[in-house]
């Protein structure tokens, strides 16, 4: 791969009815970085995440990941290439246990084949044991070990955020796209999740992170991409962007777009 960026987003455009949510945004994410995607409400951040992850079809533009074009692939195919996205609101599998939530994530499990599941359940037992062991380790990392047998719906809001990260780790991602991973949680947990993200970066996972909390962005993100009215407005480090008048204006004024009409 050499110098090529891990994720390339090139001129994506998406309209919902008359609203142009994303209007030609282009940006890249380098391997081994935590990159923030910021911008006022209605800048098109979540739409861009949806397009990258395959949940939304772009009207125009292309998305490349690890040198391959992934534009228009089904979300599960994109995930299998190692690009996992999380959702703006914690969406655990509520009526499954915490451990089970993690056990869903690993790709291509032997026991997911019908014939193996019905006729040769011994064949997947070894892999299952290894995955349980790994899942318990991951739960321990995130301080959720004690909750492993609890239904995921019974976790607190903060624990659900941690669970979201934990089950993403179980999928062995190359890159994680986090859509507001720290929304609605207390400051102590914000820094806690930030440390987990940095720990995972050290382990080789790259991040693209939609975030509103600029203090957090400054502390943990290597690069920042600013979107406004569906376009890339600027990119650089947080310190550079603080000097950028256009960025300051966009954040303060909403970029000239009525935030209530566009998402």
């Amino acid at each position: 791969m050499g110098e090529a960026p891990l994720l390339e987003v090139d001129g994506i455009r998406k309209a919902f009815g008359g609203v142009l949510a994303v209007d030609g945004a282009s940006f890249t994410v380098e391997a081994g970085t935590v990159t923030a995607l910021i911008g006022p409400n209605g800048a098109g951040k979540s739409t861009a995440v949806g397009i990258i992850g395959g949940a939304l079809a772009a009207d125009e533009g292309r998305v490349g990941f690890r040198g391959d074009e992934i534009t228009g692939l089904a979300p599960h195919r994109i995930a299998r290439r190692g690009l996992i996205r999380t959702f703006q609101i914690s969406r655990e599998y509520p009526a499954m246990t915490v451990l089970e939530n993690l056990m869903v994530s690993p790709m291509n499990q032997e026991g997911e084949k019908l014939a193996t599941a019905l006729l040769a359940h011994r064949r997947y037992r070894k892999q299952e044991r290894e995955l349980v062991l790994k899942a318990l380790d991951v739960l321990a990392d995130f301080g959720l070990y004690g909750m492993r047998d609890e239904y995921a719906r019974n976790l607190s809001g903060g624990q659900k955020r941690l669970l979201e990260l934990a089950r993403s780790v179980m999928a062995d991602p190359v890159m994680l796209i986090l859509d507001e991973p720290m929304a609605g949680i207390n400051p102590a947990l914000v820094s806690h999740i930030g440390e987990h993200i940095l720990r995972l970066r050290e382990a080789g996972v790259s991040f693209l992170m939609v975030e509103h909390n600029l203090e957090v962005v400054e502390r943990i993100c290597d690069h920042v991409i600013v979107l406004a009215v569906g376009r890339t407005l600027a990119r650089g480090t947080m310190a550079e962007l603080r000097q950028n008048e256009a960025v300051v204006n966009a954040y303060l004024t909403g970029g000239g777009v009525d935030a209530g009409t566009a998402r």
Binding site: A55, A79, R91, V104, R167
Partner: peptide, 10 residues
Amino acid sequence: EDLEVAEAYG
């Protein structure tokens, strides 16, 4: 439990 999430996890 959640169709969209299961899809996003491959």
